[in-house]
Simulated assay, not measured.
Amino acid sequence: MKASLKLRDDAGPLLRAKLPVELFSVPAVASLTAGDPADLRLSLATAVPALPSLRLSYAPNRPAGSSPLSASLVLGYGPGGCPSAPGASAITMVVEVSAAGALSFSLALKPSLGDFAVRKRFYSDGAGGGMSASEVAMRSVVPVRGGAAAARVRWGVRIPAEMTAGVEAGAAGVMLRRLPFLVLGKVTVERRAGKPAPEVAQQEEAAVEKVRRENEKLRREMEELRATAGQRREKETVALAGAGRSGGGRSPGMSTKRDGVDVGPQVNPAS
C-alpha cells in the first residue's frame, strides 16, 4: 500500500492512496484521490508488466455537463509502453475519454538522475491547452519502523510557468512577475514487501538463536535426568538381587559350617 500527500499552491493538499489488487487474476491497482471536492476520484488501473495501463475512473464532482465516468490509456517509457516499470515514469502520456465523448491529453516529463529530477507537464482538455510550472526536485528517503515502510519526501525549486512563457515570447517583464521558489512538493509513505532492514533481520536471527540454545539446554537436561534415573534403577535392582541371594540360600534347621566346623542347626532358645 502507498499513500502520498501533495502540496499545491493554488488549492488544498491532494491526498492519494493506492492498493494493489487482482482483477480476474490480472494485477491491478485501486486508488483514491481526495482534496478539494472537485478532486474526488476513484480509479482502478491494470498493472500488467510490459503493457500499457488501462484505467477506469469515477469522479462524482466534475463540473456540470461532464460525465463522472472516464477511461484512460496510460503509456510509459518502459518496455511495451508499461508505465509502472522501473524508470518508466521518465515520460508518461495519458489519453482520457469520458463517457460523454470528451477527449483530454496530458504529457509528463520527469527525467531523473539518482535522487534528482526535473518535472514538466503539458495538458490539453479539448477547450485549450496549458503547461504546469517546471520543477527541479530532490527526493529524500527515510526508513520507518525498521525498514518495514519508507517515507519519501520530494522537495525542490519550482520555476513558474510565467517565466517559461516570457522566455518563449521574448518579454523580459513577464520573467520578473514570479521568481523561482523552494517548495515541499510531496510526501509519500510506502509499505515495503520483502526483506526487512538489516537491524530487524539481526534481531530476528538473535531471537531464533536464543530459542535454539534454550531448547538444546532443555534437551541435555532431560537426557541427564534419564541417565540418572536409569543408574538409580540399576543400583536398586542389583541391591535387591544381592539381598535375595544372601537371605534365600539358608533356611531354619539346616546345618552350617563356621571355620570348617559343623555347628549344627540354629535353634531358637525360646522353643
Rank of each mutant, 00 (worst) to 15 (best):
A85S: 13
A85G: 11
P86Y: 08
P86A: 12
P86S: 08
P86E: 04
G87R: 12
G87S: 13
G87Q: 11
A88H: 02
A88L: 04
A88P: 07
A88M: 06
A88G: 05
S89T: 11
S89Q: 11
A90W: 03
A90I: 10
A90P: 00
A90T: 14
A90F: 05
I91Q: 01
I91K: 00
I91W: 04
I91D: 04
I91T: 07
I91L: 15
T92L: 10
T92W: 03
T92D: 05
M93Q: 12
M93F: 11
M93C: 04
M93R: 12
V94S: 09
V94M: 04
V94R: 03
V95R: 15
V95I: 07
V95W: 05
V95A: 15
E96H: 03
E96I: 01
E96L: 09
E96V: 03
V97N: 05
V97R: 15
V97S: 07
V97L: 14
S98W: 02
S98R: 10
S98C: 04
A99Q: 14
A99T: 05
A99V: 05
A99R: 14
A99D: 12
A99N: 10
A100T: 07
A100S: 15
G101Q: 11
G101H: 13
A102W: 14
A102D: 15
A102E: 15
L103W: 09
L103S: 01
L103I: 10
L103N: 00
L103E: 00
S104I: 10
S104W: 14
S104E: 07
S104G: 13
F105V: 04
F105N: 10
F105K: 08
F105M: 07
F105H: 15
S106T: 05
S106L: 07
L107C: 08
L107Q: 10
L107W: 13
A108Q: 14
A108V: 14
A108H: 12
A108P: 00
L109G: 03
L109T: 01
L109K: 02
K110R: 14
K110F: 02
K110W: 00
K110S: 12
P111A: 09
P111R: 09
S112K: 06
S112W: 01
S112E: 11
S112M: 02
L113Y: 09
L113V: 10
L113S: 07
L113R: 06
L113N: 02
G114I: 10
G114P: 12
D115S: 11
D115G: 04
D115E: 13
D115N: 10
D115H: 06
D115T: 06
F116M: 08
F116G: 01
F116H: 06
A117H: 06
A117F: 08
A117G: 12
V118S: 05
V118Q: 02
V118N: 01
V118T: 04
R119E: 01
R119D: 00
R119I: 05
R119S: 07
R119C: 05
K120S: 03
K120A: 06
K120R: 05
